[in-house]
């Protein structure tokens, strides 16, 4: 009787373990497949944003200026290419500063102390769009990014 119970327990254990492992494998397989999908979806969306801007390549600069308005600056290169640059500046700051303190007794022994905590931050960046225009006033290249 004991033998039968042991055998049954062993078979039960093996079946449960096997199905658990199968479930885990399936779950992680699904997770990996989902991970690839998510990663490539993010890439596709990011590419679309760039694509929409750089799609101006091939159009005339007057068309762009009509839609975008005035540019920030213009450079003329020795090879006859003119670069129209549009810039947006972003800056700001935030966070908080909590000063530290030290509590001592009348003999100068430190009873309690806490270091200052500085979570302040500031940022300053420039988003730029550069349109390279040839002598026939056609945009032949677009660069975009931040600096």
């Amino acid at each position: 009787m004991k033998k039968t119970v042991r055998l049954f327990s062993l078979v039960f254990y093996l079946v449960v373990t096997a199905s658990k492992m199968e479930a885990q494998t399936l779950a992680s397989k699904n997770t990996r497949a989902q991970a690839r999908y998510n990663k490539e979806k993010i890439y596709a969306d990011a590419q679309r944003k760039i694509f929409t801007i750089t799609n101006w390549a091939g159009a005339s600069i007057s068309e762009l200026l009509t839609k975008w308005g005035g540019f920030t600056k213009k450079n003329e290169q020795p090879n006859g290419i003119t670069v129209y640059i549009f810039e947006n500046h972003y800056s700001g700051s935030g966070g908080s500063y909590r000063p530290g303190y030290v509590v001592t007794d009348q003999f100068g022994n430190v009873l309690e102390q806490k270091a200052a905590k500085d979570n302040t931050y500031s940022y300053s960046l420039t988003e730029y769009y550069e349109f390279y225009v040839d002598q026939s006033q056609i945009i032949i290249h677009v660069k975009t990014g931040t600096r």
Binding site: R36, K41, N55, V142
Partner: peptide, 25 residues
């Protein structure tokens, strides 16, 4: 393009997919 998206390229040589179907280098 693993998910069957059709890739397109513009005059600036940037690549996107139609309907933004996932793709990657």
């Amino acid at each position: 393009s693993f998910y069957g998206g059709e890739l397109i390229i513009n005059d600036n040589d940037d690549v996107a997919s139609k309907k933004d179907v996932p793709f990657a280098p």
